[in-house]
């Protein structure tokens, strides 16, 4: 496999720029980009997880300093995350043996990026219209409860000012851990909306908490992939990290100058574009219908 160092640095830089601008981890862009660059999906996923650690750690440090994260909530999410990631790694190896890994990874990306991108676009367009009408949006309506708040095993999360059952927290963590190990993402793009809309966590601690648990889930995923599949490429990951960490700083500065709704609309369009491209590839006749893979998998 021959790859170009500068292409990888640029790729990391571009994704880092976007992730800094939009405040996302960027894993959901790195893995598809690596696949577009003809890196085998198994390597792209495992290496993507490795890269996610660097960007999340960098981001989480800032939140640690500002104390805008809920360590207790993050730890409970993490407990679920580890379980989910373990199951994910199992399923990953099984799909690889079946020869369906590439398909499932692409399908998961198409579905999740499509849904998340679509929802974000609708929401941001609505917000842009509303702000033109002169109103301001409120995300959290205090005192509002849903079925999730009626579940047993309640626990108090002081930093989030929450008193909620651990069941949905662990399940959410497990679900995202599962996706993280199959898709090579941190899962922030699902975690953040889920924390805000489902668990009603205050927005100021959401991103920090999400990043905090992503570090550990991504670290766990990286170790599992490297022991079970030897599919982590540290050189590849390192180049992406260096580009990514540098790009993120400039992205963050540009992001501060743009309006929130417009920023979200842009990100939504980008996410949809990646989903479309991945989906399109599934329907195009391959150069050869036959493919080889070494090993009796």
């Amino acid at each position: 496999m021959s790859v170009n160092v500068f292409v990888l640095l640029a790729m990391g830089g571009a994704v880092g720029f976007l992730s800094g601008m939009f405040g996302v981890g960027g894993g959901f862009l790195i893995t598809p980009l690596l696949i577009f660059y003809n890196i085998p999906p198994a390597i792209a996923v495992a290496t993507g997880a490795n890269q996610v650690i660097a960007s999340s750690f960098s981001g989480a440090l800032a939140h640690f300093k500002r104390k805008s994260l809920d360590v207790k909530l993050g730890t409970v999410l993490l407990a679920g995350g580890i379980v989910g990631a373990s199951i994910g790694a199992f399923v990953f190896a099984y799909l690889r043996r079946l020869g369906q890994l590439d398909l499932i990874v692409s399908l998961l990306y198409v579905v999740f990026l499509g849904v998340v991108g679509g929802l974000m676009l609708m929401e941001s367009v609505r917000a842009i219209r509303r702000s033109r009408g002169g109103q301001t949006a409120t995300l959290r309506k205090p005192g509002q409860h849903n079925w999730i708040h009626r579940l047993p095993l309640k626990m108090r999360f002081r930093a989030s000012k929450l008193f909620v059952s651990v069941i949905p927290v662990v399940v959410l963590g497990a679900f995202i851990g599962f996706l993280a190990s199959i898709m090579g993402v941190g899962g922030g793009f699902i975690m953040v909306p889920a924390l805000i809309y489902l668990l009603k966590v205050p927005t100021n601690v959401v991103i920090g908490t999400s990043l905090f648990q992503i570090i550990f889930v991504a670290a766990f995923t990286t170790i599992i992939h490297s022991t079970a599949n030897q599919s982590v490429d540290v050189v590849l990951a390192f180049l992406l990290m260096v580009g990514g960490v540098a790009g993120a700083q400039y992205g963050a500065r540009v992001g501060q100058r743009l309006r929130g709704e417009q920023l979200r609309a842009l990100l939504a369009l980008l996410v949809l574009a990646v989903a479309l491209r991945l989906g399109f590839d599934l329907f195009v006749q391959p150069e050869s219908v036959y493919s080889l893979s070494t090993g009796a998998m």
Binding site: N50, Q51, I53, A54, S55, S56, F57, S58, L61, A62, K65, I215, A219, T222, I223, I224, H225, S226, T227, Q230, V232, V234, A237, F238, M241, V242, V245, A246, A248, Q249, A252, R253
Partner: peptide
């Protein structure tokens, strides 16, 4: 990667953490 895959994985994680941390120090603005 093939013979000591566990240590390899842990090393990959550490490299990522150090890179993220260094990035923070080098580009710190807050």
């Amino acid at each position: 990667a093939h013979q000591n895959s566990l240590i390899y994985g842990i090393a990959a994680v550490l490299i990522a953490i150090i890179t993220g941390w260094l990035g923070r120090i080098i580009f710190r603005k807050d």
